[in-house]
Design a protein around this nucleic acid. Structure first.
Lengths: 182, 182
DNA sequence: GTCTATAAAGCGATAGAC
DNA sequence: GTCTATCGCTTTATAGAC
């Protein structure tokens, strides 16, 4: 028996590496070690369902490891710092792309629009919540939260474009300082 | 006779809308109004050459309209402000994606790596040059230039993801202020 | 220079054996 | 549950008429 969850992470890497259109069933089969029969048994909806499940899995990971801690933290300042640690590890200092961000830029945005919107909206909201509870006013918290998410996404683009992970690291360092200051 | 230059802008829109893999020759033919024979006559190297030429055209546009003015400006502060005007118009307040940024995130980065690297490196360098000549120190100029390009790219991602062009506009407004301050 | 016809390969998806 | 064989379609690219 092949577990769906096991397959999902390998599946995610294929979508990350080649995009939705570039992730052919041949590549997916090679990466997962599964034949088409097994893949369609696990995901009856085919490639579209695979992508939907991958996005849901990513969303769940961020909800559990980033958003929920930001909202629930007793010491929100530490939760924000922990978020930067998690972001740096997850995106491998900019070497790993944000699949949800890639989808947002592509034509698949229409198909997966609500998942994309929700992922980013909850990120900004959870971060703004933590920033506000650490002493900022509401407007300033939202603005800074939005800017932090913007810079994380942009830093992935620029560090990959220049092939310099240091670009990502510098951006994170600067943002940590901004978030920590009152 | 069909001009290569005329075709390039329509070609660019197809790549922007569907990505490299999603831009099929059928779509390209429809968008340009040209048959395959004409397309291969204009671009003997096929789709890869089309993409290379599109990236070169975009690069040329930015070089002429953004980078060169930033480097040559007698009043660098005004050149930076003009850059923000041009960026806002070109990216349609975040509704239009940056094709070079999209390539940087995808698997085509390896194929077009040098074009992508050069486009962003020259953007950051030209902007840093203008910022320094407007009174900043060298290190601060480079850091701010890098952050501005990062935020432009990230603002495109987030504004598209949330389907809110206002996100892009807010980021540009904040950056203008940062760049104008001494 | 532009077209249509066609080739050869790859695509997503399905059927059916085991 | 996993495989292979296959369908029908689309892909990039070429050939050749005009």
């Amino acid at each position: 028996m092949t577990s769906r969850a096991e397959t999902l992470s390998k599946l995610a890497e294929v979508f990350r590496a080649h995009g939705y259109e570039g992730a052919s069933l041949a590549r997916i089969g090679r990466a997962t070690g599964l034949g088409k029969g097994s893949l369609y048994n696990l995901f009856p909806g085919g490639k579209a369902e695979m992508a939907t499940c991958v996005l849901a899995e990513i969303d769940g990971w961020f909800e559990t490891n980033l958003y929920a801690p930001l909202r629930a933290a007793e010491r929100p300042g530490e939760a924000v710092a922990a978020m930067f640690d998690a972001v740096d590890a997850y995106f491998r200092s900019g070497r790993r792309v944000c699949l949800v961000g890639v989808v947002a830029l592509g034509s698949e945005r229409d198909r997966f629009g609500e998942a994309v919107r929700s992922y980013f909206a909850r990120w900004v909201a959870a971060l703004a919540d933590a920033l506000q509870r650490s002493g900022r006013d509401a407007a300033g918290s939202t603005a800074l939260a939005e800017e932090i998410v913007v810079q994380i996404q942009g830093a992935i683009v620029l560090s990959r474009a220049l092939d310099q992970p240091a670009v990502f690291s510098r951006a994170m360092t600067a943002l940590r300082a901004r978030a920590a200051a009152d």
